[in-house]
Nucleic acid binder design. Structure first.
Length: 472
DNA sequence: CTATGGCACGGATT
DNA sequence: AATCCGTGCCATAG
């Protein structure tokens, strides 16, 4: 049976095709990258063409010419996002991005590249080129808890730069996911986390003092003493402590991701984003740029020499070679299809969740996978597969699971958080339910309790009777 | 007596 | 078909 490698049908041709497309769709870009590499080394029919780059910005491309950002037509509606495949292989290019300068340290390469690469990617755009060695040095000096093992002074001394510059770089790093990474002590990590957390949700004012002044009491769970020190009751002290342990992590290296703060999910793969969303400008009408990380896209092809050689293949090898050829063609086609699906999906999704992407949690609209599948005219399970286990990087640098864009209750939970943060006296669940109802979120009282629990907020009677004012 | 958490059920989602 | 989520009912703590 001949392989119709020229055919560009978007519809699966064979059951094998179908099955493989399904499997590929579930893979993370990093996993796909590994799979392709495995295939490349075992299958001689497959080869890697030269990388194509944009003539202007040198971004890696899937097709020749200008990248979609550089070539974008001048007047496009803001709602229309720019979506394109970005064939970068992330962890590979980690060293690429640092080069230009000499690498300060050999152990930078393989050993613990997951966490450093993950963090570096988040700050890559803001980081001045001359600060890269500093960032690299810091990131490669982390222990498994994500804490710094060297002093800033040593680094400054090593590069002969002012301490303040190192501090600046560290500050950028600390504010990346996992928040607090690179801190020198657990205490410092907690402080950074509090700072970041306070931007998106209310934080008990005393938590800051508790961390700053009473770390030892916190770790010993000495709540009565803690209460006395802070001038509040034991119950309130316990609440603070619980808030801290629920929402903060003194060892940022053992990261959880996103906002979730449940049990230590030791998901071993740090998440390279599969999709990167950024803004073209600061204005609220900005067009969004969506990069779909698709390793080797456009660079993978069937080795023409192999195809020629096949004609004169020794008889005993002919079958095997033919199989190689078919396998390679199939893989390429499946990858194309995977990318195509993801592009279409993101294209639509970004439009639907534009508000959320730009303005944060409160603006998430509850989109279901089913409804999206319907619009795209694909099967629900296709969307499900494409969404599961992938991560997306938002313009603000946060990396969250793609499934968060399908969260049905996040916007209600943020409304709830907001209500509680503004309460002058603790409101009962029933009362909160009423308030939510007035805002257009009809939820049962019982559900309020569930949301509270999810957010690590204690029941009304354990909350502070009235806001305690502290020196900020 | 009121406010909450636990358990379990049914419908929606995956 | 399996799972998740919102909700109602009931026991319990304050």
């Amino acid at each position: 049976m001949l392989l119709q490698s020229q055919t560009h049908s978007l519809r699966p041709l064979t059951t094998a095709h179908l099955a493989q497309t399904m499997t590929l769709l579930e893979l993370t870009s990093a996993e796909l990258c590994q799979k392709i590499e495995a295939e490349l080394s075992s299958n001689p029919a497959l080869e890697l063409a030269d990388q194509i780059r944009c003539r202007h910005c040198h971004r890696r491309l899937a097709q020749t010419g200008l990248c979609p950002v550089c070539s974008r037509p001048p007047n496009v509606a803001a709602e229309q996002p720019i979506v394109f495949l970005s064939p970068r292989e992330d962890f590979r290019t980690f060293s690429d991005r640092l080069t230009g300068e000499d690498l300060p340290d050999d152990n930078l390469m393989v050993a613990e590249e997951d966490l450093p690469a993950y963090v570096l990617r988040q700050i890559a755009t803001e980081l001045a080129a001359e600060d890269r060695p500093l960032a690299a040095h810091i990131l490669t000096s982390l222990d498994e808890d994500g804490l710094l093992t060297v002093t800033l002074f040593e680094i400054a001394h090593f590069y002969h730069v002012p301490l303040s510059r190192v501090e600046n770089v560290l500050h950028m790093i600390q504010r990346c996911e996992p928040v607090g990474v690179g801190s020198e002590t657990p205490q410092q990590a907690l402080l950074v986390q509090l700072e970041v957390l306070a931007e998106t949700r209310p934080v008990p004012p005393l938590a800051l003092r508790a961390v700053r002044e009473a770390m030892d009491l916190l770790s010993r769970r000495a709540y009565p003493e803690l209460g006395r020190l802070l001038g509040v009751t034991t119950a309130q002290a316990a609440y603070i402590a619980r808030f801290i342990s629920n929402n903060l992590n003194p060892f940022p290296g053992r990261a959880h991701w996103g906002e979730s703060h449940d049990s230590p999910d030791s998901n071993p793969t740090y998440h390279n984003p599969d999709v990167i969303i950024s803004c073209l400008s600061q204005s609220p009408e900005t067009q969004l740029v969506v990069e779909i990380v698709a390793p080797y896209a456009g660079a993978l092809r069937i080795n023409p020499l192999f195809r020629e050689a096949l004609a004169q293949a020794p008889a005993e090898k002919a079958d095997q070679w033919q199989a190689h050829l078919e396998q390679a063609g199939l893989l390429i086609k499946c990858i194309q299809q995977r990318n195509h699906t993801i592009v279409r999906l993101m294209q639509r999704l970004v439009v639907l969740q534009r508000e959320f992407i730009l303005f944060g949690d409160a603006h998430l609209s509850p989109v279901t996978r089913a409804s999206l599948a319907d619009e795209l005219e694909v099967h629900e399970s296709t969307v499900s597969r494409a969404v599961s286990s992938k991560a997306v990087q938002l313009p603000n640098g946060r990396i969250v699971p793609l499934s968060k864009l399908f969260d049905r209750s996040l916007h209600i939970r943020t409304a709830l958080i907001q209500i509680i943060s503004q309460e002058t006296q603790p409101l009962s669940d029933t009362h909160i339910a009423d308030l939510l109802d007035k805002r257009g979120f009809p939820v049962a009282r019982r559900t309020v309790a569930k949301y509270r629990a999810m957010e690590g907020i204690l029941p009304a009677r354990f909350r502070q009777p009235r806001p305690v004012f502290t020196a900020k």
